[in-house]
Design a protein around this nucleic acid. Structure first.
Lengths: 185, 185
DNA sequence: TTTAACTTTCAAAAGTTTCTGAAAGTTTAT
DNA sequence: ATAAACTTTCAGAAACTTTTGAAAGTTAAA
């Protein structure tokens, strides 16, 4: 059976500041928990957090060791992060292995996530709202009226939010944050 | 064993437009799916959707029947929705039962959800970021530098987003949407 | 070629969340 | 007080998600 890597040996061996290792771990766990409550697999969020705070690209092996996860799990989650455009492969000359780096610009990370989730989750609901509001039947029936009215309100609101999101995704950071801050006093 | 209620009998009995029943179902399911990918229990989102499109308050029994769920499940999810401020109890004079209505103003619904999730999920991560960025150790160590830098970037970004969110939560709908729309052309 | 270094896949196991329904609790009417 | 109408709880079951690790696949140097 594989034994959890010993904290003290790890630290004295690798000459890493003890407090740093601890802080990293705390951050990685918090990011993982946050991911979980937003529908993102914990390990995926942890891999992302680990790469975010690593100055250099890490190999699959290093990710496995740092997070105590299996090869398959590491591979699967790194691949998903690459699909989402949040992590990139890096090849080092002279090395056979692949290394992975995270996109470090938090604004880009946010835009990337917004883009992906919009496509995967908002677009399907727009389609349903559009279809469903053309319900056939007596427009004076209280039930039909309430239904159509609610659907139209939801549609109006989500379309507005979506347009705002799209503008943000396309926008340049400075322009956006600038305008926002001015607007918000 | 309980048998799924027959669609045709239900409709002819209650004089409900057949297409409406179908549309409601499609909307309820889509809302449930959307909830799932945003970390909200499917049934909770479905109960919310059902109440959103119902012109009148529904009893626990009616919710159970419409969604084919157990009493315990219905009760638990209605209670959570009440906790979140998205659903209200309603008592009808002469009736022993409690009835439930959803907040129909989508803007209020959004604000309410934002408020809850901010408290439950964003606040804890702010606490961690604050703690973790005061890592002790050599400020010239590449690892420490990258770590502190990333944490500070994340903090700056999330604080900004959070302030925007807070302003929106407090803001009056018309003012906000107006300003937004002006800003977004 | 062949072999070694590495990556990917996938079926089964472990872990987690959600749901059920019967039992316990509460409230209101008589 | 008692009974009836209704709500809440909770332990176990079911459903769903994630993880593992061994085997299969790929690539690149010898």
């Amino acid at each position: 059976m594989k034994v959890k890597k010993c904290f003290y040996i790890c630290c004295s061996n690798q000459h890493i500041n003890m407090k740093l290792t601890e802080s990293k771990e705390r951050f990685i766990n918090a990011w993982g928990t946050l991911g979980t409550s937003w529908g993102i697999n914990r390990t995926m969020a942890q891999v992302h957090a680990l790469l975010l705070v690593s100055p250099d690209a890490l190999s699959a092996e290093e990710i496995m060791e740092e997070l105590n996860i299996s090869r398959g799990n590491a591979n699967m989650n790194v691949r998903t992060l690459i699909d989402w455009g949040l992590v990139f492969k890096e090849i080092k000359s002279g090395e056979r292995k692949e290394f992975f780096v995270a996109e470090k610009d938090i604004w880009k990370v946010f835009k990337q996530i917004a883009k992906e989730r919009r496509k995967r989750e908002l677009e399907p609901i727009f389609k349903v709202l559009e279809e469903v509001k053309n319900v056939e039947g007596d427009k004076h029936d209280k039930n039909v009226k309430e239904f159509v009215n609610t659907i139209e309100n939801i549609e109006r609101f989500t379309k507005k939010a979506d347009r705002t999101l799209e503008t943000m995704i396309k926008a340049d950071e400075n322009w956006l944050i600038g305008s926002f801050m001015k607007m918000m006093k």
